[in-house]
């Protein structure tokens, strides 16, 4: 038992570090590790992974908030989209064809992976001009980038398209059980013109809230097994604290480089899932 605890705990640490750096929930590591590595049922793994999303978000957010990497105003604006989307997704889950959605969302991710690859040189970006909502709500921000050794000021644009994408990302999370951060980071980075590190930190901050409403369902159903979730969540918490510190010192370009293959992999996996069932 002790060995199992320690190995689950270690998986948690890895998932926490990766999740905190990339602004994702870490489910991409935890779910396969628990099901394939430990032969646990899918429901147990997904329930544990949902609580882990909260752990990543909470653990990493402390450091990100202190360094102002998290844009709380953008986060709250976009959380309206994710939370309403998640609600719609959960309610509509019985009505829609999941296969079509997997393919659609997979294609969307593939497109954003391509787009991220195309615009991988951060400095080659055009100046971001804030739109009316962004100006009115003062969404622009600044943070001190430890990797660059200087303060980065930025503006936010296309706030409404961003909100709409968040709505669908929330719906995808509710319908397909994926997409904690994988849609949010590209939406802020590619659509709203935010710097990659601010996008990742803000995504990290937001995913905890979306996951909380899902986690309640898993708790109510009794899918959260304390002996599985306990060690992995503890590992994720510590990993996320560590990951947040690492991320603040990493150059944005390198984080992006890590993000792209994961994005591409998830896209392929989703399209495959959708096509396989036909």
């Amino acid at each position: 038992m002790v060995i199992t605890f320690i190995s689950i705990f270690a998986i948690g640490i890895v998932a926490g570090v990766v999740g905190a750096i990339l602004g994702l929930g870490g489910g991409i590591i935890i779910v396969p590790a628990l099901t394939l590595g430990f032969g646990m049922p899918m429901r147990t793994a997904v329930a544990a992974s949902t609580v882990c999303i909260i752990a990543t978000s909470t653990g990493a957010a402390v450091a990100f908030l202190r360094d102002r990497l998290t844009n709380t105003r953008v986060a709250i604006w976009l959380e309206m989209g994710t939370s309403l989307g998640a609600l719609t997704g959960a309610l509509a889950a019985a009505l829609v064809n999941q296969r079509v959605l997997f393919v659609l969302f997979g294609l969307l991710l593939a497109y954003s992976a391509y787009n991220m690859f195309r615009t991988r040189k951060e400095h080659a970006r055009p100046e971001v001009v804030p739109d009316a909502i962004s100006r009115k709500l003062r969404l622009g921000g600044s943070y001190y980038d430890k990797a660059l050794g200087r303060r980065v000021e930025y503006q936010v644009t296309r706030t409404l398209p961003g909100l709409i994408i968040m709505y669908f990302s929330g719906a995808a999370a509710g319908l397909l059980g994926i997409g904690a951060g994988i849609f949010k980071v590209p939406a802020m980075d590619q659509v709203m013109g935010m710097p990659f590190k601010a996008s990742s930190a803000t995504s990290n901050f937001m995913i905890g809230v979306t996951a909380a409403s899902g986690a309640v369902v898993y708790f109510a159903r009794g899918d959260v097994k304390p002996l599985v979730a306990g060690p992995v969540v503890l590992g994720v918490l510590l990993g996320a604290i560590l990951g947040a510190r690492l991320m603040m010192r990493m150059p944005a370009g390198r984080i992006r480089l890590f993000f792209m293959p994961i994005l591409a992999y998830t896209a392929i996996e989703m399209i495959y899932k959708g096509v396989k069932w036909w």
Binding site: V51, I54, T58, A212, F219, V224, A229, G230, V233
Partner: peptide, 11 residues
């Protein structure tokens, strides 16, 4: 379980 619920309540 109490620990997990505290975590759940935080966000």
């Amino acid at each position: 379980t109490v620990g997990l619920l505290v975590l759940l309540g935080t966000p």
